[in-house]
Structure formats: C-alpha cells, structure tokens
Design a protein around this nucleic acid. Structure first.
Lengths: 202, 202
DNA sequence: GATAGAACAGACCAACTGGTGTGTCTATAG
DNA sequence: CTATAGACACACCAGTTGGTCTGTTCTATC
C-alpha cells in the first residue's frame, strides 16, 4: 500500500481530468469517471477541489498553460527568421506533440470554444493563455522586423493573431475530417502567407 | 388556442434547439429547456423526434446546413476575381449574419469541434456540410484559374481548405476574446494571403 | 508518544436528465 | 357523421450527476 502523497493525488486527479476534458469536453467530463480512472474516491476529490469547476480551472492553469508554453512558446525563443523557421517548426510539430493532441485537437482551443460562453472564470483563464501565446508571437515578429527579416510596416499584433487563428483553424479542420496527412498542405499555405511579410528589397 | 400545425411544431422545436445548441453546445443543451422555451411538452417532442440525438441531427440538416449555404456558399456564386471580391465579401459579413453568430461564433464549427469525437452521426453530417463549403471554394478557385485571376500552379483544394480553416480560426479567436472589431484586421491578413495566389506576370 | 490537523474512504442525497406510457384531442378521409 | 390515425398533454420513472457528511487513518510536530 503506497503511503499518502497529497501532491501526487492532486496531480493524478488533474492529469486524469485533463485527459477526460480533452476527450469529452468539460461539460462531458464526469467527476465519477475521473475518480474511477484515477482510483480515488469522492472524499479525495472534494478534499483537493471545491467543485468540478475548480478542477477545470486547475486543469487550465497546471496542464494546458504549461503545454501551450512547451509546444508553442519555447520553440519561438531562438528564432531569427520567422519566414524560414516557422514552417520548419510546423513540420516537426506532429512528432513533438503527444498523440492525444493529434486525435482530439488543441486542448486550449477546444476548451475555449466550449466554455467561453458558459463560464467567465474559464474565459479569463483561457484568454490569458491565448494572449500569452499571441504576445510571444508578436515579440518574435517585432524582433524579426528589427533584424530585417520582416517588413517594418506590418501590424505585428494582427499578424500574430492571424497566425494563431490559422493554426487553430487548421488543427480544428484536421480534427473534423481526421486528415493528419493534410497538415503539410496546411503548413504550405501558412508558409505562403508568411512570404507576404518579407521585405521587398531584401 | 392556435389550431394544430405539426410542421410548425417541428420547426419550432428545431429552431429553439438550434439556438440552445449554439449557446450551450449539444451536450449542454437540455431537452426540458427547449420544451420550456418552445412552450411544448415531452409528448410533442418524442412524437417528432426519437431522441435528443435525432433532434441534433435535424438541427444540422435543417438549420446549420442551410445557414452555411446562405452565408458562405451563395455569395461565391457570382465571383470572378477571388483576390478582390473575397475580402470585400468578408467586410460585409458582419452585417449579413444574425447577431447570435457574432456572440457565439460559427454554429457549424462549434458543433463540429464538440461532437466529432463523441458521436459518429454528428461527424458524418457535419463533415458533409464542411466538405460542401470547401468544394464550393475549390470550384471558385478553379474558375479563377481559368479566367486568369489566379496562378495555375496552386493547389486549389489546399487553398480552399486553408481559407475555411483561417476563417473558422479567426471567428473562434474573436469569440474567445470578444473582439469583433478585430475582424477587419483579420480580414486584412486573409487578403494578404490571397495576394500570394495572384499570377506573377498579370 | 500524544495529538491535532491533513488526507482520505464510503455511504448517502437531492436535483436533474433523457426517456416512456397512457390517454385525449383533433384533423381528415370515407 | 364516423372511424382512424396523427398530434399532442401529462404523469411518471430509472439512471445519472455533482456534491455532502461522517468517520477513519495517516503524518508531521512538539
């Protein structure tokens, strides 16, 4: 019998809940099922979380936010020329992400689209993560301008927002028609779009 | 007391259900609430539909599909130069769609993202609608090629898919951060992308 | 090693949820 | 006018859902 480890118990609940939310949405996620999968009881659950919603918030903060950072933010750090390196990063993406994300799409966008109109707590937290992502892209674009890789008259924020929108759109489309093989085609179009940001006179 | 009108009763249920699904998702939609809003009873409901899921299917076929056709397909019919006319259409879009769509986003994409992994009946029907949309764009692009408005070496299907993906992505993003005013910025980026499809030597 | 509080187990519950069954009314064909 | 089937109303239900309550066990601290 493993000794008590409250931190591990809490993590267990959050990770299991994350997977269930990813599969069925937050409304479709069942507390009892999370308990069954994690081998815990009601007592444990409501000791660590005040409600199902509180667990959902924790999943956003402690699972989705770090995941977005590692998948989308970190690769941006050392990027010089976005036009050349972003498509390359998108190529390597399918191998970098957990298999679950290829099946069920982006956890951030899934949960956001579902819960934004249902609960303001979700909206605030998910919007924070989304804005962090957009801001990181914006920073990269600004840097690209300074280094002469990008035109200086482009609207960095608008471009950053569009990149995120296009990515989420492509992921969502691939999820619906279950065509991961179309990802490269999608990447090519994004690469084409990025070319519009290239300075005219090199 | 209004006389009986089964067709109107059925439409009433479908339209009310459509709004409730749009607001809360299919899983969040409650049969009892639809009944309350439409002023009908369980007897009426299960006379016209065999289950909640059957109602959902009817909503896709009889509400979402026609809506997609009128909003996205019909404006494509008379288009000659997509690069010039598509952005113009996107400008006029906010006034052409019902206000509900500005709040809650695209009913097609919302329902698709939610239900694709939950129910194969939804997946098939929603995929059909989506493919009809993509096919219409593809046709327009092919026409644009022939008429010399677009480069001939572009992958029509990939471009069509990306346009849909970008649109759904932008709508989804606007839904999350509730910034309809960013729509024009988003439109500009799409317009920029479309420029990449322009023939080189006019 | 006593003890207080944290970390659970497990039984229980009220509200809700989709769905059923029976009966009644109404339109329509003959 | 009457028979018949469609179009509902209404009472009812079994299973599920998130959540509570009480009690027990572990563990850190003095």
């Amino acid at each position: 019998m493993t000794s008590r480890n409250p931190q591990q118990t809490r993590d267990n609940l959050i990770q299991t809940a994350f997977q269930e939310i990813h599969r069925h949405g937050f409304q479709g996620m069942r507390v009892d099922e999370v308990l069954r999968l994690s081998g815990l009881r009601k007592g444990a659950f409501y000791h660590h979380f005040s409600s199902k919603t509180a667990l959902g918030y924790a999943v956003v903060e402690e699972q989705i936010r770090p995941l977005v950072r590692s998948v989308w933010l970190e690769p941006l750090a050392g990027m010089d020329d976005p036009i050349r390196e972003l498509p390359r990063m998108l190529d390597a993406l399918p191998e970098r992400i957990p298999p679950m994300m290829r099946e069920h799409g982006c956890p951030l966008n899934n949960l956001a689209q579902e819960m934004v109109d249902q609960d303001d707590g979700f909206r605030q937290r998910l919007l924070e993560v989304l804005n962090e992502w957009i801001a990181a892209l914006e920073t990269m674009i600004e840097r690209g301008k300074i280094q002469g890789y990008l035109r200086e008259d482009i609207d960095s924020r608008a471009v950053a927002r569009f990149i995120v929108a296009a990515l989420e759109g492509c992921i969502g489309l691939a999820k619906v028609d279950r065509s991961p093989e179309q990802w490269s085609a999608c990447r090519s179009q994004i690469a084409g779009y990025l070319e519009t940001l290239r300075p005219v006179a090199g």
